[in-house]
Amino acid sequence: MSRLDSMLRRLTAQRDGLNWAAARIKGLKGDVLDMGLGNGRTYDHLREILPDRRIWVMDRVLQCHPDSTPPAEDFLQGEAEPMLKKLAEDGPRIALAHYDFGRGIKHEDVAEAARLSKLIGSVMVPGGLLISGQPLEGFEQINGPDSIAPDRYLFYLA
């Protein structure tokens, strides 16, 4: 598979997974967390499909497209561990989390996801959903939408 085809497959899985999860959390109270802002495409999509939810965004630096810049009060800038601890100060508040941290070095990205899993769990409300491109630990893995290959994106219940 070419890198272009792989990227298209990943982005389609991301979109389909977020749409599926947004529909599943309709009756669940809580905010949304996008871990890994990057260019802001996922954040922009979350704003569109969940307009009534507060969307927290976390990344090392703010370097997204100007149209996808989160409000300053919802942007947690810095390393993931202290930002998750800061978010956890007020207790569990996240109904849907999207994990998209990584630099593209698989073994390092998997290790970071495992290391951050417990902190991610501390911000999740019971019954909340997590969508991730990396395996997370300490959550119940569930099946996502049928349109997504099982190895492309992972879905978890908090």
Rank of each mutant, 00 (worst) to 15 (best):
P70A: 08
K106D: 00
Y153A: 05
F139V: 04
G144N: 06
F155G: 00
L28C: 04
F155M: 01
R10Y: 07
A88V: 08
D90R: 15
A80H: 09
R9M: 00
D74M: 10
E112W: 09
G138H: 03
E79M: 09
M58T: 03
I49V: 15
K26T: 13
I55L: 10
A111T: 03
I120M: 13
D67E: 12
H65R: 09
E81P: 09
P92K: 15
R60A: 04
G127W: 05
P70H: 05
S6R: 15
A22Q: 04
V110S: 05
G121H: 05
L84S: 10
S6M: 09
D59W: 06
K118N: 09
A158M: 04
D90Q: 15
Q63G: 15
R41T: 07
W20V: 07
E79D: 14
P71S: 10
D31G: 06
A88Y: 14
D109T: 15
A113M: 11
S117P: 06
N143S: 14
M35K: 12
I55Y: 11
S117Q: 01
K86V: 10
L129N: 03
A13K: 06
T42R: 10
A72P: 03
V110P: 05
Q141L: 01
M7S: 09
G30E: 00
P51Y: 03
P135S: 04
L130V: 12
Q134S: 13
G36E: 00
F75G: 02
L130G: 02
S68C: 15
L46M: 13
V125T: 08
Q14D: 00
L18I: 07
V61E: 10
D146K: 15
G27I: 00
D90E: 14
P51A: 09
R10S: 06
A158V: 05
D34L: 08
R9D: 00
V123A: 00
R15A: 00
R9F: 00
A97T: 06
Q134P: 02
K106W: 10
Y153G: 00
P126A: 09
I25T: 12
G36Q: 03
G36M: 03
S122L: 05
K26L: 07
Q134G: 01
G36N: 08
V61G: 01
D151K: 12
Y153M: 11
G40D: 02
G40Y: 05
I142P: 04
N19H: 13
G104H: 12
Q141M: 10
L18E: 04
V32K: 03
P150R: 14
L62A: 14
Q134V: 04
N39Q: 12
M35G: 14
I105N: 12
P71V: 03
V125S: 06
H45R: 13
A158H: 08
P126G: 03
L96G: 04
N143Q: 15
S147N: 05
V123G: 00
R152G: 01
L84Q: 06
G30V: 01
L87E: 01
